[in-house]
Design a protein around this nucleic acid. Structure first.
Length: 608
DNA sequence: CCCCCCCC
């Protein structure tokens, strides 16, 4: 196996031998800081010289990880560059390669190469006497250039110029090696990243006491992480049109500053601002870079997130409300909004609000899947979501999670009754449920104390009392007072001291639920009663008036279903008689993973 | 240098 003799020395002197063949004598993994990508450093031989300041581009790590390259392997380097570091040290970066022979096949060091001391690179005149495989015209006397421009070299062979060595994607600017986004800090400014644009904002203008202007941001991603980059005024004019979502660019010479976490949904500690020096150039071979990534959260788990935090969410738009408008309390401006009800396989529904253009342009036909990166969590109605200015809304994204959701929805999700975070108390601390069996509730005297006891029980609906399970309630929001029928088509609310021509149906449903240990009578108010019966109270009330047999059918169909009941137990005294009253706070679908784990825990407590 | 993202 013939190596490209002296090619290392040539490269260190800014010559560009084509497709040089080297032997990898040794390799060392450089563990990176958290979130960054590990890199490999190679000890490379050209048969005459050994050089240790050689790095493998991160996208070639697979050659090391798959053991395609082991010690003594011979490689052909089809793309490379030589960068100058502080102290005039030179680093060869291998950008692309082919493995010509495995380390096992070669089995030994070829030739007797001399080690090059990186701080004392021998002059080109010290090229060893054997015939180089690559014919390279050498400049007669060329000092070590201070320009580390890849592909630029002595003038004696212009025809051999960079069309062979610099691929179209290689930027024409002087550059150091490609850095990872995760490695950027404000304390270094000689860096260059190769990154995909995952988001480009609209152009926004501002005007305040400090002045006015326009700006935009892009979000950038590489293997190591994400960062936001903002362009103001002149930079906006220069780069806005050029930057396209999903395309890959080289970025260098942006200002870095600590990201204000209050406004940033990305996990990066820093963010970039374009300045007059900034260079952005397209990169045509960025296929190896990741696209937008999500860390999806199940809707049922939203109560584990604090209000004002951001989450990635994907769900089916089960309900798409019409646009409406609200007046901002702060700006007094009217804003268009649209509320969606989002559901997923976790069996919980949550409201998601779209604003402005997102709201007006949204088409809810056909139960689309939507993904939101960085949706804002609020505790309205237990938990709600909002697509904020820094969120990204993607309708029918081409991601596996979307296809899975679609399949689930078409098969079963469509007919599922979804629970909500309403009735969970809203504070949503996300405590692990206090699971009890009904016999435990009795044995432990739950609800007998001063304060109510809350517990969660998995139970089956055994019986529902249909008499007096609903009433005509005051139509005023938040007033659920039972109305007095005046007999003249009007209904009187004693609480509001008003008469109404209309009413809303409210439910108080008494049901008996059982587990394998005992049974328990529970009272379900509106939301949990609707959850058990699978129908809105207003529909049920109308149904009962029109056709009582249909109403009976709804009640019967609700029997023998299993739920995870969130219950509140408290003794109440009425007419000198005290009895335990159990109110259902929520009837949620059983999560059989959680429930299975609960059973495992109970089994282990039996000590069998 | 923005950073408001609203309401119920």
């Amino acid at each position: 196996m013939k190596l490209s003799n002296n090619a290392i020395l040539q490269i260190l002197h800014e010559l560009t031998p084509e497709n040089p063949k080297f032997q990898v004598i040794n390799a060392k993994k450089i563990e990176s800081a958290a979130n960054s990508v590990d890199r490999y450093r190679l000890l490379l031989s050209d048969g005459d010289y050994l050089y240790s300041h050689v790095m493998l581009a991160a996208q070639l790590n697979r050659f090391m990880e798959s053991n395609e390259i082991t010690n003594y392997a011979v490689i052909e380097v089809t793309k490379y560059m030589c960068n100058k570091l502080a102290g005039d040290k030179r680093v060869i970066i291998i950008l692309d390669l082919k493995v010509l022979a495995s380390g096992a096949d070669v089995g030994e060091k070829i030739g007797n190469p001399t080690v090059i001391n990186p701080s004392e690179i021998p002059p080109l005149s010290s090229i060893k006497e054997d015939v180089p495989e690559q014919k390279v015209s050498l400049p007669t006397s060329k000092p070590l250039a201070t320009n580390n421009h890849f592909g630029k070299f002595g003038g004696s062979n212009p025809e051999n110029n960079n069309q062979k060595l610099s691929k179209p994607s290689t930027p024409s600017t002087p550059s150091s090696r490609v850095h990872s986004i995760a490695s950027l800090t404000p304390y270094q400014n000689r860096w260059r990243i190769r990154a995909r644009v995952t988001f480009k904002s609209n152009i926004r203008t501002w005007s305040n006491s400090k002045g006015e202007g326009k700006l935009f941001n892009v979000n950038l991603i590489d293997e190591s992480g994400e960062i936001r980059c903002t362009g103001f005024n002149e930079q906006l004019d220069k780069f806005y049109d050029m930057l396209e979502v999903n395309k890959v660019y080289y970025f260098s010479k942006c200002s870095l500053k600590t990201a204000n976490k209050q406004y940033s949904t990305l996990k990066c500690d820093y963010e970039m601002t374009m300045n007059a020096e900034t260079i952005i150039e397209p990169c045509n071979d960025g296929a190896d870079l990741p696209s937008l990534t999500f860390e999806f959260v199940k809707i049922s788990e939203l109560d584990k997130f604090k209000p004002n935090s951001n989450v990635d969410i994907v769900g089916i738009v089960k309900v798409c409300n019409d646009v409406s408008s609200v007046v901002s309390k702060q700006t007094q401006k009217e804003i268009v909004k649209r509320d969606l009800q989002l559901v997923d396989q976790s069996g919980v529904a949550v409201n998601l609000t779209l604003w402005g253009d997102d709201a007006t342009k949204f088409d809810g036909q056909g139960f689309p899947v939507i993904a939101v990166k960085g949706a804002r969590v609020s505790d309205f109605n237990g938990r709600s979501l909002s697509v904020s200015g820094s969120s990204q809304l993607i309708v029918n994204p081409g991601i596996p999670e979307a296809f899975t959701l679609r399949g689930w929805f078409e098969n079963e999700g469509r007919d599922h009754h979804f629970s909500t975070f309403q009735g969970d108390g809203g504070s949503g601390a996300g405590h692990s449920p206090n699971y009890k069996t009904f016999i435990q509730v009795k044995n432990e005297n739950l609800g007998q104390g001063e304060k109510a006891d809350y517990y969660t029980a998995k139970g089956t609906v055994m019986f529902i009392k249909k008499d007096n399970c609903m009433y005509q309630a005051c139509p005023t929001a938040d007033c659920n007072k039972k109305l007095v029928d005046q007999g003249n088509g009007h209904y009187r609310c004693e609480k509001c001291n008003r008469e109404f021509p209309n009413y809303k149906w409210r439910m108080i449903l008494n049901a008996n639920v059982a587990d394998h240990t005992d049974n328990q009578w529970i009272t379900c108010f509106q939301e949990s009663a609707e959850a058990l019966l699978g129908i809105p109270a207003d529909d049920l009330g109308e149904m009962r008036e029109k056709d009582e047999s249909q109403f009976d059918r709804v009640i019967n169909e609700a029997l023998f279903k299993n739920y995870l009941f969130k219950l509140r137990a408290k003794v109440e005294t009425y007419n000198d008689e005290s009895r335990l009253k159990t109110v259902c706070m929520a009837a949620n679908p059983v999560n059989y993973i959680d429930y299975g784990n609960l059973l495992l825990e109970r089994l282990s407590q039996l000590g069998i």
